[in-house]
Computed example of a mutant assay.
Amino acid sequence: MKQRIEELDLFRGIAVILMVMFHGVFDLSYYFGLDIDYSGGLWYYEGKLSALMFIWIAGISSYFSRNPRQRGIKLFLFGMAITAATYLLDSTNYIRFGILHFLGTSYLLSPCFKKIDSFALVLLALAVLAAGTYFDSLTTQNPYLFPLGITTPYFSSLDYYPLIPYFGVFLLGMAFGRGFYAKGYRIFGELRENFLSLLGRHSLIIYLIHQPVLLLFLFIARKSGIL
């Protein structure tokens, strides 16, 4: 982008806080055995809101990006590094197509959609979202279709954001970026850098390091008798 859109960093910062909160709850339940339901109710929707915010903002940013494919490759490689790390921790349940894989693939695909008419782009996004409802009910014996949202009956992943339906949210972000931000509109007007926007500006590095930091903190708390 020629000029950074400060409020997008602010929205990313909010998403970062929601993400860290959700993963803290997840870690307490999954790794430390506390009776907290993260797969439904408030915490489930809180985590989904964070992810949807990241995806929508990425769609907006991709519209302005000068080299979205380079960014896509970078994000996808980070995703594969996380796949390798989680596989080493637990080869039976690791991250196979998490949000970084999804965002990387979406950035790689985004140049194919930039020149599509805005109305058609929204219709396509809605079609992808609707297809997700159908794909969610499908199962296959082919173990390689999971990036599209079609899985085997035994598929599992600690983090899973398939292209269908979530690419629909990404496309809506692209359409919003074109129809709103590209025309100079802003939701909050001009913003100065603040704590939230600072978090948002460094959201990728925070994403990469926050889980080891959380787990270390919680492990120390367990050893200290706090948990």
Rank of each mutant, 00 (worst) to 15 (best):
D37H: 06
L198Y: 13
F32Q: 00
F22G: 00
K115H: 15
S106C: 14
H23F: 13
S110I: 02
Y44L: 15
A84K: 11
A130P: 02
G47Y: 09
H101A: 05
G59L: 02
G79F: 09
Y38K: 06
M21R: 08
F219K: 08
F32C: 01
H202P: 00
S137N: 13
L138S: 10
A85E: 14
I5H: 05
H101E: 13
I57K: 01
F188A: 12
D136W: 08
L124N: 06
L77A: 13
F170M: 09
L227Y: 14
L109A: 12
R12S: 10
L129C: 03
Q211E: 12
L198Q: 14
G177E: 09
S156A: 11
R96D: 08
L145N: 04
R12Q: 11
K48V: 04
G132S: 05
K74N: 15
Y185G: 07
G24C: 08
M1C: 09
P143M: 02
E6M: 07
Y31A: 00
Q70A: 12
D37P: 00
R66S: 08
G104C: 09
I99E: 04
T86A: 00
S137V: 14
Y181I: 02
L218I: 01
F217K: 05
L88R: 12
Y94V: 08
Y166C: 10
L109V: 07
L10W: 13
L103S: 05
T86I: 08
P162Q: 10
G132C: 04
F219S: 12
S197E: 14
A127R: 09
G132T: 15
A125V: 08
L204S: 04
D159N: 05
G104I: 02
R186P: 01
F76N: 03
R201F: 05
I73C: 06
L214H: 03
L172K: 06
A84R: 02
A58P: 01
I220Y: 05
P153A: 10
G173C: 08
Q141I: 02
L108M: 08
L158H: 07
D136G: 03
V169S: 02
F64G: 05
E193F: 15
I99R: 03
L158S: 13
I226V: 14
G13N: 11
I5R: 03
Q141E: 15
L158C: 06
F170I: 14
Y107G: 02
L129D: 00
A127C: 10
G168H: 09
G41S: 10
D9K: 15
Y185W: 12
I226K: 03
Y144R: 09
F135P: 03
D159F: 07
P165R: 14
L75F: 10
I82A: 06
F54T: 00
Y44C: 00
H202A: 11
Y63Q: 12
S118T: 15
R69W: 08
Y144D: 11
A84M: 13
L42C: 06
F119G: 02
I209R: 07
E46S: 00
G24M: 06
I95N: 05
T151E: 09
F54S: 05
F167C: 08
L42Q: 02
L42H: 06
F180K: 14
F170Y: 14
L34W: 11
S61R: 01
R186Q: 15
A81S: 12
F217H: 05
L196H: 04
Y38R: 01
R69V: 06
I116T: 13
N67E: 13
G104Q: 03
Y44N: 11
